[in-house]
């Protein structure tokens, strides 16, 4: 009961925050919540299975672009539903085609997926609709977007908590460890991977869709920016992709650091980012939380 009440209190405080924060503060909180959700959703699939997906921005962009295209023609909630459905369908197609293959093929494919989607959307806009770039006029303020993201983050965490109590978590970890053993224990490996990939991709699509109104002007190069895939991955890995809270723990310091970097070193942002990432790969191969845990275990072991 206690953690439940504590959780409600934290959510309440976070929801209340934009009422007292200034615009900058709310914007910061919004961006952070967006990345925390992206990283948590990314880790939901990639953490246990160790299938490294570089496709985050493909789905994020699909969500954002759907909103840009449909915001004038459909009521907003329906736009979100349509965006989620498109993200779901694309992830199912991509997943079906690539998840049966060895992990490295999946990485390669996901690496280029954003570029593929971006070029296809651009092609479609230029040749079929004759526009490139769209305006989004939705009566949503920063805090409205933030509240939606917060709700999505809470939902994502709840799914994560539930999953960890159910057999699917066991199956996912088993898939990451040894697919053959998992199969022979009765796990339908392909279906398990596909289901989780699709779930994770759908949440990521929704993050893009919800955040889209933050840009009033949207075009493919903006919403399919590969830095988003990169940051999501770095955050989840730093915090520990196998842990429920890991991605959030990673997202907070890195998001603030990146904000600071892009404000102070706008031109050298990407260099510093890449450098930090290489350092992370070297320093914490399994993420900070996992590392703390192994240290804890060692200490316990010595005590016995």
């Amino acid at each position: 009961m206690k953690p439940f009440l504590f959780g409600l209190l934290v959510i309440g405080l976070l929801a209340w925050a934009p009422l007292v924060l200034n615009d900058y503060g709310t914007g910061l909180l919004l961006g952070l919540t967006g990345y925390a959700t992206l990283a948590t959703a990314w880790a939901m699939f990639s953490g246990p299975t160790r299938y490294v997906s570089l496709a985050t921005v493909a789905f994020f962009g699909i969500g954002a672009y759907t909103v840009a295209v449909l915001s004038e023609t459909l009521p907003y909630p329906l736009v979100l539903v349509v965006a989620a459905l498109i993200g779901l369908s694309v992830s199912l197609v991509v997943g079906l085609a690539t998840l049966r293959l060895a992990g490295v093929y999946f990485v390669i494919f996901s690496f280029g997926l954003a570029e593929l989607v971006r070029q296809t959307v651009t092609w479609y806009e230029v040749n079929v609709t004759g526009t490139l770039g769209r305006y989004i006029f939705l009566p949503l303020e920063a805090r409205h977007i933030y509240w939606q993201l917060l709700a999505l983050l809470v939902l994502t965490l709840l799914i994560g908590i539930y999953m960890r109590k159910s057999r699917i978590w066991l199956a996912l970890v088993a898939v990451g460890d040894d697919e053959v053993a998992a199969r022979h224990a009765g796990v339908d490996v392909t279906r398990t991977k596909l289901a989780l990939f699709a779930l994770s991709a759908t949440i990521i699509t929704l993050v893009g869709a919800i955040q889209a109104p933050r840009w009033t002007y949207v075009e493919p190069t903006i919403v399919f920016n590969p830095t988003i895939s990169f940051l999501t991955l770095v955050m989840a890995l730093l915090g520990g992709a196998g842990k429920l809270w890991g991605p959030i723990v990673g997202a907070i310091p890195l998001f603030l650091l990146f904000e600071w970097l892009s404000a102070n070193f706008p031109n050298h942002y990407s260099i510093i980012l890449g450098g930090i990432f290489i350092l992370i790969v070297f320093a914490v191969p399994n993420g900070i939380l996992a590392r703390l845990e192994t240290l804890g275990q060692r200490r316990k072991g010595e005590a016995q």
Binding site: V52, G103, G274, F277, F282
Partner: peptide, 19 residues
């Protein structure tokens, strides 16, 4: 090694591009 090298060179990609 595959995962590590993918991640490290992903970082390198951003460094080269940034330069």
């Amino acid at each position: 090694l595959e995962v590590d090298s993918i991640l490290a060179t992903f970082g390198l990609l951003f460094v080269i591009q940034g330069v």
